[in-house]
Design a protein around this nucleic acid. Structure first.
Lengths: 183, 183
DNA sequence: CCAAATTATGAGTCGTCACTCATGTTGTCA
DNA sequence: TGACAACATGAGTGACGACTCATAATTTGG
């Protein structure tokens, strides 16, 4: 665990860079230049490369944060939400994806460009909890498996960015998707 | 209609370039270089740019062909297939997308990078025929609209390229999607 | 078979982007 | 507070890709 505590300014800059990167990639996709990220973060380009030696490293770090955030949200819903919390989570993620290219681009890269262990951060476990809860309550068919839910969620996020997906269409499409899980 | 009949070699080269482009883009995505397309087609790079002044023009032409092919297939299924022909078409397209990045990348670009009129080629009409047929036969709920079907199809194609979609998972995911359309 | 127009060629241009490194700056700890 | 290590800076490098253009090779109508 090589974590010899970063210097104060270094920690601050690292956070700024990550925040700026999410903004920039949300707006222009992951093909946006590293220089644009540096500009938005208010640091020199060399600083970005000091913290993230490769653009892929930067993307991986974002992915990690993202998964962490989703895992937390899924965990909260699993604990507090009712039997349909899975549906809530599903809709929330798609809604977020609609306005933020980063999520989708990273999901798209999943495993190819960006090396991310999908087991990390407990996202899988949290989703599994949501699914089990829904299954036991009978709002989801018994034979629906976790990987199918993840697959549909991924697909929906991609679709949400496609041309012509108005909010209305998005809601109807997600509704149809969830209908496919119900008994 | 500016079509003063191309010279024989020009027609041949145009066809070769289109075929090569589909191959290359299927393998490496639409970010593959124009030079690679030229190499595969066995022509010089200048020739590619003579026929398609811009890379976007090349992509648009491929898109047109692609939509035409899908429209024909949809038309055939609408005429010959049974009430579940819509499901057959859906599954076929996803299956094809799984092995060919071009389809998906172009769908993803839909309207942004590549300017394509989705009304062209009668794809919408053919799909509508399939949907109507299914609806009348009662295998699809009455309130399902065409744009939802297209949205789900797009989403599924994107997902089919994502990491970890084994053939088995792909089939199950599509099955769940179609379940969402049934009464 | 022969011009004249059309098309093919491919080395070169221009721009962009990920990434580097010599130099300057700042935080930290004794 | 001083001194050293950690960090920041930003002009520069090399690679790559879309696109151009002067020149050479084909096709085609007469």
């Amino acid at each position: 665990m090589p974590e010899p505590t970063l210097r104060a300014d270094a920690r601050r800059n690292r956070a700024r860079i990550l925040a700026a990167a999410v903004e920039v990639f949300d707006e222009h996709g992951t093909s946006a230049s590293t220089e644009e990220v540096a500009r938005r973060a208010g640091v020199a380009i060399g600083t970005v490369f000091r913290h993230f030696p490769t653009k892929a490293d930067l993307l991986t770090a974002i992915m990690k944060d993202l998964q962490g955030g989703l895992a937390v949200r899924a965990g909260t819903l699993a604990a507090e939400g009712g039997p349909t919390a899975l549906f809530t989570f599903f809709a929330e993620v798609v809604e977020r994806a609609a306005g933020a290219r980063t999520v989708v681009h990273l999901l798209a890269a999943g495993g190819t460009d960006v090396g991310v262990d999908h087991q990390v951060a407990g996202l899988g476990e949290a989703l599994d909890a949501l699914l089990t809860r829904a299954r036991e309550a009978g709002v989801v068919r018994a034979e629906v498996r976790l990987d199918e839910v993840v697959a549909l969620l991924t697909a929906a996020c991609h679709g949400a960015l496609a041309a012509g997906w108005t909010p209305d269409l998005r809601h109807r499409a997600v509704a149809r998707l969830l209908d496919g899980l119900r008994p």
